[in-house]
Design a protein around this nucleic acid. Structure first.
Length: 373
DNA sequence: CCCACGCTTTGTGGTTCGAAATTAT
DNA sequence: GATAATTTCGAACCACAAAGCGTGG
């Protein structure tokens, strides 16, 4: 808690270093390399929503150390984001080389508030924090931010769920993508409160323009009536199962970009996009599961060519940015899959089910048939 | 091409157990 | 913050009929 206060004091002591270049009033939290400008979230949206060209600008969080460069490294140990220079100084020249760090990516487009929350790695927190914004006091009272912060990047499983049969029992795993710890600090560095404050303000101005009403409702369900409507009981924060496994940024018109500005995949962080690409190389298209599974093996075989297609697609997609039409197509494909996805268990052979239910068991296991029967 | 045959593979559900996550102290 | 207790979750296990597949006539 003392660290938090120190951080806040630091922020209070040097607001002039982070003034938004556009409005000159708010604290700048983002950096746009294309514009060489420090921006607050509000101005960022204003500036980058004016035309399609500007939406391609990649923005990063501002470095917590120098306040003047785009942050590309998150130090989980310090809960700070650093530009490359500051990261080098902090972790290579100091006594803290063993700090747990990971790369940060920028984003493009004009993500809505919920998407920004997702980008910053605390979408659930954000929903909760914004919903109960008054409870999160700047002096550290009420809920502490460390309590809110939950790294909520969709798990590999959920992404896998988007692109591969989850009931196939496969043993494939994306190569080189270490599983993310469940609980992590959000990737927003020392200015979490200011970020949430600005996002809170932004959310007030934001119309419910998203076509994914579920996210909007989930995002705004601070009203008891909405809780009742959604069937939520109690006051705890919950998500329905759909949201628990699907990136909330789905269908959004923004891209994650690596530090080099390469396209990764819309709606997914680059690491997850890597996972997506690599997994797609190994797994048959999920369509084989979406359709009527009664086709059995023949149907699966009929979808196998998608693997070859994938091999052709990967290098092409990975190194260029999708145009808007391709993006829309990809989004619509994903949404269509989402609509037809079946979570319930599907029985392919009813006769086997009937037999299994009637079989004798010992501690749940199938037992040998009594030869005398 | 069709059919019969034999071998291999698949799928089915209730229970258990261990790992991970969460909660309590 | 550390540790213990509790809860949650998912994989593994089992036998065997049915499906899948190759082969020979």
């Amino acid at each position: 808690m003392t660290e938090l206060k120190e951080d806040q004091e630091d922020q209070n002591q040097q607001p002039q270093r982070r003034l938004c270049d556009f409005c000159g009033e708010n604290t700048a939290l983002l950096y746009c390399r294309a514009d060489s400008a420090k921006l607050c979230f509000s101005c960022d949206r204003e500036v980058h929503s004016t035309n399609q060209l500007f939406t391609k600008h990649t923005r990063w969080l501002l470095c917590d150390s120098c306040d003047s460069s785009p942050a590309s490294i998150l130090c989980c140990t310090d809960s700070c984001v650093f530009c490359q220079n500051c990261d080098w100084e902090s972790h290579n020249l100091s006594l803290s080389p063993a700090h747990e760090r990971r790369p940060l990516e920028g984003f493009t487009g004009c993500p809505c508030v919920s998407e920004l929350l997702s980008i910053l790695g605390f979408e659930d927190l954000g929903k909760k924090a914004l919903s109960y914004g008054d409870s999160v006091t700047s002096d550290g009272g009420g809920y502490g931010f460390s309590d809110w912060l939950v790294w909520d990047t969709p798990s590999v499983v959920s992404l896998d769920d988007l692109i591969a049969p989850n009931d196939s029992g496969h043993n494939f795993q994306a190569i080189g993508v270490p599983p993310l710890p469940k609980n992590r600090n959000a990737a927003c560095g020392k200015h979490k409160e200011e970020i949430l404050s600005q996002l809170r303000e932004l959310s007030k101005l934001e119309p419910n323009s998203s076509d994914d009403q579920d996210d909007i409702v989930a995002f705004q369900f601070m009203e008891p009536a909405q809780n009742r409507h959604l069937g939520f009981k109690g006051s705890g924060f919950m998500q329905n199962s759909e949201h628990a496994v699907v990136p909330s940024s789905e269908g959004s018109a923004f891209n994650w970009c690596s530090d080099t500005g390469e396209f990764t995949d819309q709606g997914f962080s680059s690491s997850l996009a890597d996972c997506f690409i690599e997994t797609k190389c190994l797994l048959p298209d999920r369509d084989s599961d979406v359709g009527d599974a009664s086709g059995g093996a023949n149907e699966e075989q009929s979808h196998n060519p998608s693997i070859a297609e994938t091999f052709q697609m990967v290098p092409k997609v990975a190194h260029r940015e999708l145009n808007s039409q391709e993006r829309e197509t990809a989004v619509s494909r994903y949404k269509e899959k989402k609509k037809t996805r079946r979570y319930e268990k599907h029985i392919r052979y009813v006769s086997r089910k009937v037999r299994a239910e009637s079989r004798t068991r010992i501690k749940g296991r199938f037992a040998k048939m009594d030869m005398h029967q």
